[in-house]
Every structure is written in structure tokens, then in C-alpha cells.
Write a protein that binds this DNA or RNA. Structure first.
Lengths: 202, 202
DNA sequence: GGTTCTAGAACC
DNA sequence: GGTTCTAGAACC
């Protein structure tokens, strides 16, 4: 037996537990908060509010419905109804706890770009410590202004380096693409590249 | 007067309305569901459950808290507290309905690349350079230095625009190249594109 | 432009 | 591995 059968991810065990516990206590309460769906191949959160406030904290370290959803997506669950919070996963079925151990987090593909070229890198702005500062009013002196300008210039220089690096990568990538194209096109295929001058790529 | 002052995005008007309405009715109910924060430069959803069930449908076409959050992010709001659903935006302030018209959706580029192939698009927040020029006159000593810094600053900005333009061109070219490749390659040709997962390009 | 579903990424 | 905040993208 493979190690897969060892131990299911805690998130899945807990979610499964939660559904089983609700099933047992079902008779006692009039209102169903969460349950297996009819076919037993998925589950429905009938009352997100109660679910978040009452059940999530019992099993997880939060009461945040979005966080629960995020985890479901991480493990590959799909929302399968448009007007209900119903989720399904091939291996998440009533009565099949053993299948949980076969479920895995989706791994996020490592990016081909270095981190500073990735979409989010532009969001890492140095904190604006000088904006709300009382010292602005107090010392509208040129000293502060000088500092700010210097800071901004430094930032602009950094940005320029980043942009130039991006361009370098684009050039590399395009060379590769052109090489690839040349291997696969028997004849010149200028028709599909109306805007590209090969000479400009080096 | 520019067209900016015409008409704020409906989402923002409605959210502002919602807060004003709650403010008026505040005395009648014991429980605050949503309100401006103390400083009036943001707001807090105190009870997400009630907010979603009772208020969202009154103003929007859904009762989905996540959808509301998604809209806030689209318009550039930031969540500003870790244990509260508090959101702020520079231009979303109590008593300043006129500022709403200056707010805009963040635009997102349409999609040809998987996100990891898309270098960071222009998300730059150019810092405020508009200091009152009087302070410059006051500091006669560093006037020259200031001028030089400002000049350099201006130059760096111009360069940035150019570089970003170049990148835009590269993006366009790469899209064309990839389209072209997809027309001419019957089978995946991984050998010539070590950095690119072909499957994601079609 | 709004709503929904899912994912990226940082942080814990 | 879990939790949080935000964004991409499809669909309406």
C-alpha cells in the first residue's frame, strides 16, 4: 500500500467530519446548515451565515466563509450549482472516507519568470512614510522636499532596471519563438507577422 | 468641467447610499450592520451575515458577500483591518459624495498569456511631486540642487514611458508569434521552448 | 459595468 | 499546510 493511504489532508478530514456530525444531529434541529447532497457525491452549505459563525470555528481557525471556499478550490472542488453553495469532488463522497487520502492540493506551477517580473512585483511599493507626516506642515523646508525627490528618483531608477530586464527577457523569448517558427515553417510565413521586423530583435 | 464630474459608477453610489441610509436609521436599531468608520475615511461591515442577507439585495442584484468584496477590490478599496471587514479608499469619504465621480475601475488587460507569462503591467502609482513651490523659494540655498533633481526626475519618467511602450510592442509581437506558431505546429514542440508550456498557449 | 467562480501570492 | 487579501477571466 502506498503512503497515499496514510493520512488525508486535515482540511478534508475536518470537512468530512463536519458533514458526518451534522448528519447525526440532523433530527434535533429544524434547520439544515450543511449536508451531503442527495446523491452523496458532494455537499451543500445551506446557510452560509450559520455555517461560518457556528461550524467553521469548531473545525478551523477562522469563521471566514471565503477562506473555506479558498481551501475547497485548492483541493479541486467545483461549485456545481449556481443558486446553492454546492461543491463536488470526484473523491469526496458520503461513505468513502478512505478516498480522502487520495486527494491532493493543486500545486501552483512555478513561474518561468523571476519574481521581480511577475505581475505582483509592481505592487510591492515601499511604504509611504512621509505622506501623512506632521513634519510636512512643520518643516515645509526644502530639506524634506529634497529627500522626497531623492527617494522618488531612486525608485524610478529601480523601476527602470526592472523594465529593462523585462525587455531583455522579451527579446530572449522572441528569439526562441522565431527559432521555433523557422523549424516548423517550410516557407517564409510573412503573412502572419505583418508587424515584425526580424532585424529589430537583437 | 470634465466629464469626470458627471456620474459616479453605480456601484459606488449605491455603496455610499447604503452607508448614508444606515446612518439615518441608526438610532432605531440596536445592532449596527454597516457604518462609516470613526474617521469617516472608510467603512466597516460589522455583521457580514445580516449585511449580505438584508442589505445587499436592496442595492444590488445578489446577496453574495464575496461579490461585494470583489467589486470593492475592482475599484481599488483596501481592507485596512485584520479582524474587521473595514475598507478604505482615498476618495471614499463621509460627506464627500462628489469624490465618487473621480473613482475608476482598475482596468485589466485581456488575456492571451497565462498570467505567469505576463510581466507586470503598468501598476505604477507615481508619487505626488506637487509640493507647493513656495517652499522652494524659501530654500534658496538648495534651489539649484532641487532643479537638477526635478529635471532628472522628469527625464526618468519620460524614459519609463518609453520603456513601457517598448514592452507593449513586445507583448503584441509575442502574441502574434504565438498565434503563428500554433498554426504551424502540428504537435507540441517542447524542445524549442524550454521556458514555455505549449499547452497553456492555445 | 456587474456577478460569479477560481487562483496567485504573501503571510502565518 | 492554512488563512487572508486581491486579481483574472468568463459570463451576464
Amino acid at each position: 500500500m502506498s503512503r497515499k493511504s496514510k493520512c488525508p489532508p486535515p482540511f478534508l478530514s475536518k470537512t468530512y467530519d463536519l458533514l458526518e456530525e451534522e448528519r447525526e444531529g440532523e433530527a434535533s434541529v429544524g434547520k439544515k446548515i450543511v449536508s451531503w447532497n442527495m446523491e452523496g457525491n458532494g455537499f451543500v452549505v445551506w446557510c452560509p451565515a450559520e455555517f461560518s459563525e457556528l461550524m467553521l470555528p469548531k473545525y478551523f481557525k477562522h469563521n471566514n466563509f471565503s477562506s473555506f471556499i479558498r481551501q475547497l478550490n485548492t483541493y479541486g472542488f467545483k461549485k456545481t450549482a449556481s443558486k446553492r453553495w454546492e461543491f463536488q469532488h470526484e473523491k469526496f463522497r458520503r461513505g468513502c472516507r478512505h478516498l480522502l487520502a487520495e486527494m491532493r492540493r493543486k500545486k501552483c506551477q512555478p513561474s518561468v519568470f523571476p519574481s521581480y517580473l511577475r505581475p505582483n512585483s509592481a505592487h510591492h511599493h515601499p511604504p509611504n512614510t512621509h505622506q501623512d507626516n506632521k513634519s510636512i506642515a512643520a518643516a515645509a523646508s526644502s530639506e524634506v522636499l529634497l529627500m522626497e525627490l531623492k527617494e522618488e528618483n531612486k525608485k524610478l531608477r529601480r523601476e527602470r532596471v526592472d523594465l529593462e530586464l523585462q525587455i531583455a527577457h522579451f527579446k530572449t523569448m522572441q528569439i526562441k519563438l522565431l527559432e521555433c517558427l523557422s523549424h516548423h515553417t517550410p516557407t517564409p510565413t510573412l503573412h502572419c507577422l505583418p508587424l515584425i521586423s526580424i532585424n529589430n530583435l537583437t
